[in-house]
Design a protein around this nucleic acid. Sequence first.
DNA 1: TTGAAAGCGCTAACAC
DNA 2: GTGTTAGCGCTTTCAA
Lengths: 362, 362
Amino acid sequence: MHVRRPATLASLAAELGVSRTTVSNAYNRPDQLSPELRRRVLETARRLGYPGPDPVARSLRTRKAGAVGLLLTENLSYAFRDPAALGFLEGLALACEGAGQGLHLVPINPEREDVAAVHRAGVDGFVVYSVPDDDPHLAAVLSRPVPTVVADQPIVEGVDRVGIDDRAAITALAQRLTTLGHRRVGVICMRLARDRNDGFASVERQQAAHFHVQRARLSGVADALGAAGVEWARVPVVERFDHSTASGESAAAQLLDSDPQLTALVCTSDILALGAMNEARRRGLRVPQDLSITGFDGIPEAERHGLTTVRQPVLEKGRAAGKLLLASVDPTRPREVTLDTEILSGATAAPPRTAEERWFGP
Amino acid sequence: MHVRRPATLASLAAELGVSRTTVSNAYNRPDQLSPELRRRVLETARRLGYPGPDPVARSLRTRKAGAVGLLLTENLSYAFRDPAALGFLEGLALACEGAGQGLHLVPINPEREDVAAVHRAGVDGFVVYSVPDDDPHLAAVLSRPVPTVVADQPIVEGVDRVGIDDRAAITALAQRLTTLGHRRVGVICMRLARDRNDGFASVERQQAAHFHVQRARLSGVADALGAAGVEWARVPVVERFDHSTASGESAAAQLLDSDPQLTALVCTSDILALGAMNEARRRGLRVPQDLSITGFDGIPEAERHGLTTVRQPVLEKGRAAGKLLLASVDPTRPREVTLDTEILSGATAAPPRTAEERWFGP
DNA sequence: TTGAAAGCGCTAACAC
DNA sequence: GTGTTAGCGCTTTCAA
């Protein structure tokens, strides 16, 4: 604890025998008063312990908070653990820093849907990072009369957005697998809705997914497999609520238990893919000789492990979101930014082994 | 961009033919008016597009911003790359979340010392994370009439603080080295002041360091070596401005070039130590057989590499800082929190090789 | 160069 | 259960 608010601009003006305008000018428009007077004002301020204009009062008056709000559905701490989210955060922070804007992380408790924090945030705009389309916090954000930019998901009519072409990106990746000859493919995806479903995801559930990104990625895989003559309805898709390597492990186990003939696992994130690789290792399956595995995101750890995946420019995405938001006054800015992705070939995809090889070795 | 602010609490009250209090109560004290009236108010609000009470105006009135400011001297993005800072951030976020407080990251540009961002931040208090004692942003924070908690450094009279006993922790670690028999020890430390000095740091510079933590850690090493009869003035200490493995590499190179007889390198952070390990490898020095290396922090990567180091509870530190700040109204809270550390034995410290062994192998 | 007046939008006593 | 009254501390035309 520090001292209690001692002086205000008004009391300082009274003390000095000048008007409040003058004191205000001393802080905000040094050129509007004589250097001598300004010096006197600042000097007296110091003497009285006046800490300068109150930021909140100033914000009320100027209608500018000088900060950008960031909404994440997960706990804040999750953002500091997930490499992709972290990259986004860094990019966004960079953009804010460049514009001298604060970054206000909105405290969300996913359990008790407390929308109040959104209403309490004194910010000039919001960046919403990857939330489900039925997220109540998102609704709260959109109800506020400030510009908003959504990163990744959801797609909301009339709201600016920055993202990638998830569907095309993963289609290209999955095509590599079909080209290599894979036909028996299992899929591991992240949560599709706000309710926990750790298990197989029916086609209905996939199509009803509240996370557009996951929906798009599954469609992309379906596109590639469909083009290779594989019926999507027969492709096992396992969903996991928590985004962790442990999830990837158990999901891979579930898939491989249900169909040991699978020759490839397509994962909709690197984290899940890294988990799947752990599980393959545990089972004595060599990757990629016995099992191909692909990821999505291109996080550093994936690269270190030579994962075959899609790299998306997460830092750039954060920066773009920030820039888009901070340029909201400019009517000529783009309303939507789609960033490029790139396939990282890695070393976890190879032709499937034939049945013969499976039994008798290479 | 969204819509322009359409309605205010007052206009809504007028429209409804009720007082502003009633509308305010509808939002803030549902029990103060009939459910029916409340329903009508909210309904009309929706119809008029009234987004609910303006957070800034409310903050001005209630004198509560609902957010905690975080001051870091580095670029914000640095914090997202440094594992220790990240852990702290996560802990702090956790504490804020638990209290429903936002976390306002103050945008700092280390180049152009722009203290204005500190004055502009609408927050109820500040957490200051590891800045030099002459940091102008810190001064700005302390000039504001809000509670402040410093994490790690600097130590400021009358300001709450959370940290660890850096000196004792590293003394214990360095003692392990002296006990193993090391006498020719080199030290790699982080920046000691705001000016860049990538090279040897004289004892004077060490003692004048503006970063208390580094000063304490160097003293700690000096304590241990002194107890073993090694004169500190003869111990080479190399400083690096940037905190990166590259710094650790070049610092280790500088030390080993200047004195190939060194048998151990004490680093004041894990990042630097990991860099030093890289350099040792490059030179064909085996760790720990040919060279012992120790770190500080206990970041996950250090543990993965089996680094002999001190683990400090970074997440806990962040959480403690948040809790301390948010408990500022409570006069019985501690004014200072010192967290425990623990030595991670690792596998990078071993007895020094004798001169003979050096020449003829083990 | 300085000052007077008019709010920014809201909440909190306190009275009805 | 509802209204009246007073500001919270500041910036900003506009006039002097």
